[in-house]
Design a protein around this nucleic acid. Structure first.
Length: 475
RNA sequence: GGCCCCGUCGUCUAGUGGUCCAGGACGUCAGGUUCUCAUCCUGAAGAUCGCGGGUUCGACUCCCGCCGGGGUCACCA
């Protein structure tokens, strides 16, 4: 059996969004599980659309998500080069073969003439077929005109790993351009040559190519080649659920998710689950599990809508799967500036308290600043509190003074704090919603925080008492 | 318009003729976890399985038609 070799072949026209990276993910998964190779090939045959630096950005995105490729433009490989613009000789060679066998010819028309044919077809509400205008005696190809494939229309039936058994009639086969007048090949031609030369076993690509596959099949035949396994992915839909996810409609760069503190494994899990599941009720998968359990045949044929809510939930779930040490290591760059003055031990304690609260790392500062910095007293936290606003200033002071007194005797271990806090409840004849809220607000000045006892334990005695004094002074 | 693909709770989905008056997850709502936020747990609402015909003792599952959505018909990929 042929070795499994899959490829991701983007054109360098911009960043990668979730929809784009999914084909890469599935190709990577297929290669990983078969112990095969995953290849990155840059399809830069359209100079006009090329965006400078986009190839670097794509490579960074792939690596950022852990989709490490075995062969590619920056690392080379047995079938280098991996940039189509550097493989022009190959295309020329194969094109010559086609010319020699009478299966390719020079297109004598000007673009305007072809456009006129096209307009005519559209006016008559029928599909445009170039071969209806195929010249009888085409000129010799001088490299200045487009080179067209001389198709041999016939029906096709083939199997697609995702879409199942497909078939089309001869009417969809046409003479498409192999080599453009600028000397560069079209995608339609180049990818077939490259996949052949690079011994690609599975072509995993988006749905926009589905209609062209019969044409590719016809070309493979003319070339005397056996086509690789085909797998066509449905599109990921934008929030409106209609159009495919696109940059124009605000699809985010996957690297932006990484920058916001989304975990690569969560992103990968989420993207895979958009249109794929293993048939069980499992939702959270590690990359390893994905590799063993993934299968193209279980990929949904219909498009799936991108749902940020679900991504957030899934990212939180993956964050909670991390050990504290791992989390600490990965979240390093997200601490608020004030945290610089604190040692790792202290940050660890803080992290332990917020781990179950984080949806993505970028939220870290707003969840933790009060652990590192005294926030100004915010009277609204009390005046807007449904229980506390009913109390008089004197009551508030009495409560806070009692708390201060009791806390002064504590060793500030979590257990001792819990005991004392509970004792205070009886002493002051108040309920938790009143007493604990007040102390929590006084010591954090934050709208939300982890549990009182554990928060105080991390804050420590001096700081806690000082903050109570500060609040007292403001009343 | 031709051709092709798709159509189950708001969303992601399970479901390959009977165990489905349709299961799980996200989201939403309610309750519990001595305080807030979150986690976790419990519960609730939420899908006449796009519509209409068949086939069958029986259809979400098979067939036909229709409707709706998408893709494609480039010297873009």
């Amino acid at each position: 059996m042929m070795k499994v070799r899959t490829r991701f072949a983007p054109s360098p026209t911009g960043y990668l969004h979730v929809g784009g990276i999914r084909t890469a993910l599935f190709a990577w998964l297929v290669a990983q599980q078969a112990n095969g190779a995953f290849i990155l090939r840059i399809e830069d045959t359209d100079q006009s659309r090329e965006v400078k630096g986009a190839d670097e950005h794509i490579m960074k995105s792939l690596k950022g998500l852990g989709l490490v490729y075995d062969e590619g433009p920056d690392i080379g490989g047995p079938f280098a080069p991996y940039r189509q613009s550097e493989r022009l000789e190959s295309y020329k060679k194969w094109a010559q073969k086609l010319i020699d066998t009478g299966r390719a010819y020079a297109d004598p028309y000007t673009p305007a003439e072809v456009q006129a044919f096209r307009d005519q077809a559209q006016k008559e509400k029928r599909p445009f077929l170039y071969r209806d205008h195929r010249p009888e005696n085409p000129p010799v190809w001088d490299g200045m005109k487009p080179l067209r494939f001389k198709s041999a229309p016939k029906p096709y039936a083939w199997h697609d790993e995702v879409m199942g058994d497909l078939k089309t009639g001869p009417e969809v086969i046409d003479d498409f351009i192999l080599i453009k007048s600028d000397g560069f090949p079209t995608y339609n031609f180049a990818h077939i040559i490259d996949d052949t030369e690079m011994e690609v076993s599975h072509i995993i690509r988006g749905q926009e190519f589905l209609a062209s596959i019969p044409n590719y099949l016809n070309l493979y035949e003319a070339l005397g080649l056996t086509p690789p396994t085909m797998a066509t992915m449905p599109h990921i839909l934008g929030p409106d659920g209609k159009k495919k996810l696109s940059k124009r409609d605000g699809a985010k760069d996957v690297l932006d998710y990484i920058r916001d503190g989304y975990l690569p494994e969560a992103l990968v899990n989420f993207i895979a689950s958009l249109g794929w599941n293993d048939g069980t009720e499992q939702e959270i998968f590690t990359a390893k599990e994905l590799i063993t359990k993934f299968s193209l045949s279980r990929v949904q044929k219909s498009g799936a809508r991108f749902d940020e809510h679900r991504l957030e939930w899934m990212n939180g779930a993956h964050i909670r799967l991390l050990s504290l040490a791992e989390l600490s290591d990965r979240i390093k760059t997200f601490w608020p500036a004030e945290a610089d003055d604190y040692d790792d031990q202290y940050k660890h304690k803080v992290l332990a308290l917020v781990q179950e609260r984080l949806k993505f790392f970028k939220e870290l500062p707003e969840l933790t600043t009060f652990f590192f910095k005294d926030l100004p007293v915010n009277p609204e936290l009390i005046s807007n509190h449904k229980q506390l606003k009913k109390l008089s200033t004197d009551d508030l002071k009495t409560l806070l003074n009692a708390a201060k007194l009791e806390l002064s005797d504590s060793d500030f271990t979590r257990d001792d704090l819990t005991t004392r806090l509970n004792g205070l409840l009886g002493l002051t004849h108040t309920k938790p919603p009143v007493l604990f809220s007040l102390i929590r607000i006084a010591t954090t000045q934050a709208p939300a925080s982890p549990g009182l006892a554990e928060t105080l334990a991390v804050l420590g005695k001096d700081r806690s008492i000082a903050r109570i004094d500060q609040t007292l002074a403001s009343l």
